[in-house]
Write a protein that binds this DNA or RNA. Structure first.
Length: 567
RNA sequence: GCGCCCGUAGCUCAGUCGGAUAGAGCAUCGGAUUUCUAAUCCGAGGGUCGUUGGUUCAAGUCCAACCGGGCGCGCCA
């Protein structure tokens, strides 16, 4: 694509008197395909020549020598439009996809660079809600996209496995819990959560609960055997459930270093900050003052000397840099926490670590339910399990209606259903808040995961039914209809699309691309046939079908979805 | 009050580096299936791009102010 641009620029240089580089930067891709593949806007020359842009376009069209790859040069209003020779272009895209196959769309800009990605990070002893899905799914997709562009990634699950809430849970368990019942429960984490919610509610009436909770947490910190045992047990129950969900979503991590992992590094971290002269006392707490940067202070120790969230994140960042040696560390965490990240990044900068600039908060909007923030204690938490299962069941039902003879219905329903939920979360730019609505998640028509999967299935089906395999014998110049040109142009844009998604840590760029490609393909599918008596045309179109299937598949994989062959 | 984010069709959202007639999906209405999967496709209606001003040959896009919404702002994470 850039070669075409350069050729055009070279042909324009003599007539315009502009440098090739300058012309390259001026040339744009028309929004409307009808206008051509590239356009040179003539406005810039208007002043200098004292001439109306449309007239300049006409003159330039007369003057320039048409590059070999260009089939037509057309002045349209103030633009000089260039049409690239279709067969040259089509042949090149198809050949590239055939050669690169599963690697088509990959890149090398990340080679030799290591990116740590902190994502998912649910809290122990709390159910995995739909809110945690965002970090999980976005972080997972970003990891896949970055790896595709050559980066080495380190996936880190920074589990919320420490803090005073465990004291609260222990009080609740000691007062009302039944160990055997929870052990044999189908949903032990929900049972634990119920206890936690109950303790929270009762503590409003009964202040002794909070005191007891603090005491239990203190015991835990001091290594009391019973407190330790309970904590380990809670953690084990939670991890078993999380693992099951991660397996279902196809998400993996390189490290499960939760907050507790950093317990024995906290004192050293605070000490290091003290030695740097950054720590001061304020209202009984130890803080790093950030007033001159327009931020509230960063709290390191409470007045009872206990450490806080920021202390752990500081310790974790120092540890990760030392142990993993990352070039960039991403925190895929909701946008409400952006101030926290600004503060803790700033503290590292003040500490003088040269890599402070390589920490990046990748924020995303929160999920609301009926306009209200979801929270366990508000009782409006929607369980991820429930969402996944409802989606899978609905897909299963659709299969029974539309394709009852399908083999492996359960596996297909699982892939398509889970994919629907994942895609729904990755469809819009991540900073957007999401108002959770069942009707959105369970809609399988239009801009949805199943729509993309369905398109993939249709092309798979065509290739399956083709008697001759596509090979590379088809003549790309036969792909001459408008619909084919649109699809080919879209296919050509895939690598650039993935590059952008990686650069912006924005999976939705890939999802939107897939929707556009699928839309163009379905239109084509409706208007033209792939398999016909016209053997050369069929051969050419099979190459196209093969390419489309490849790109749709590559894109779905990048989002963490599993393409199915039939549905 | 201060900071960050957002404001585009009834709803959910795209809109690249400022560029040609602002685009999709959902919903509504009307159509399309002898033919490769109709979870599809085609068409119609639906717009003061929050408001005002500025920069520019050109503003949904950049700048400023204002209006509206969300989130955050010291001992939770």
């Amino acid at each position: 694509m850039s070669d075409f641009k350069r050729e055009i620029a070279a042909s324009l240089a003599p007539a315009t008197g502009l440098a090739v580089e300058e012309i390259v930067s001026l040339i744009e891709r028309p929004r409307d395909e009808e206008h051509g593949d590239f356009a040179f806007p003539c406005f810039v020359l208007a002043k200098q020549r004292k001439m109306a842009p449309p007239k300049i376009a006409l003159e330039l069209a007369e003057q320039i020598e048409k590059p070999a790859s260009v089939s037509e040069v057309a002045p349209t209003g103030p633009y000089l439009n260039f049409f690239i020779d279709r067969s040259v272009r089509a042949g090149r895209v198809l050949t590239q996809i055939e050669q690169e196959a599963a690697c088509y769309g990959s890149g090398t800009e990340g080679e030799g660079k290591k990116v740590a990605i902190d994502f998912s990070s649910p809290n122990i002893a709390k159910p995995f809600g739909i809110g945690h899905l965002r970090s999980t799914v976005i972080g997972n997709a970003i990891g896949k996209i970055l790896r595709f562009r050559g980066f080495e990634t380190i996936g880190i699950n920074h589990l919320g496995d420490w803090g005073t809430q465990f004291g609260m849970l222990m009080v609740a368990f000691k007062r009302w819990g039944d160990e055997e019942k929870i052990q044999s429960s189908e949903t032990p984490v929900l049972d634990l959560n119920d206890l936690y919610v109950k303790a929270n509610a009762e503590s409003k009436e009964d202040a002794s609960i909070r005191d007891e909770a603090r005491a239990w947490f203190k015991k835990l910190e001091d290594g009391d055997p019973e407190a330790r045992r309970l904590w380990n047990w809670f953690k084990k129950l939670s991890l078993e459930e999380f693992e099951r969900i991660y397996r279902r979503l196809g998400v993996t991590f390189d490290h499960f270093t939760g907050e507790s992992f950093f317990n024995d590094r906290l004192d050293a971290t605070v000490e290091r900050l003290e030695q740097a002269g950054l720590v001061k006392e304020s209202q009984g707490a130890q803080v790093v003052d950030l007033e001159e940067f327009g931020m509230p202070p960063c709290l390191l120790r409470k007045s009872d000397a206990a450490t806080l969230y920021a202390t752990r994140d500081l310790a974790a960042a120092l540890y990760r840099h030392e142990d993993y040696g990352f070039d960039t560390c991403l925190y895929v965490v909701g946008s409400p926490q952006s101030l926290h990240f600004q503060q803790f990044f700033k503290v590292l900068e003040l500490l003088g670590v040269e890599w402070a600039q390589s920490l990046v908060h990748v924020p995303f909007g929160l999920i609301k339910f009926e306009g209200v923030k979801m929270a366990t204690r508000l009782g409006n938490l929607i369980l991820l399990d429930e969402v996944l299962q409802t989606a899978v069941d609905k897909v299963r039902q659709a299969i029974e209606e539309k394709n009852p003879a399908l083999a492996g219905k359960d596996e297909v329903a699982e892939s398509v259903g889970i994919g629907a939920v994942i895609f729904n979360d990755l469809r819009n730019r991540r900073v957007k808040d999401i108002n959770f609505r069942w009707e959105d998640v369970l809609n399988f028509e239009g801009e949805t995961g199943p729509y993309v999967q369905y398109t993939y299935v249709r092309f798979t089906s065509i290739l399956r039914k083709a008697e001759k395999k596509p090979g590379e014998s088809g003549d790309a110049s036969l792909l001459a209809t408008d619909e084919e040109r649109l699809v080919l142009t879209k296919l050509e844009q895939f690598p650039e699309t993935v590059r952008r998604a990686a650069a912006e840590y924005e999976p939705s760029i890939v999802s939107m691309y897939l929707l556009e490609l699928a839309g163009l393909c379905n239109s084509f599918l409706h208007k033209h046939r792939f398999l016909s008596d016209d053997v050369p045309l069929t051969q050419a179109r099979l190459r196209l079908a093969h390419a489309v299937r490849q790109v749709l598949g590559n894109g779905l994989h990048l989002l963490g979805m599993t393409p199915v062959e039939e549905m």
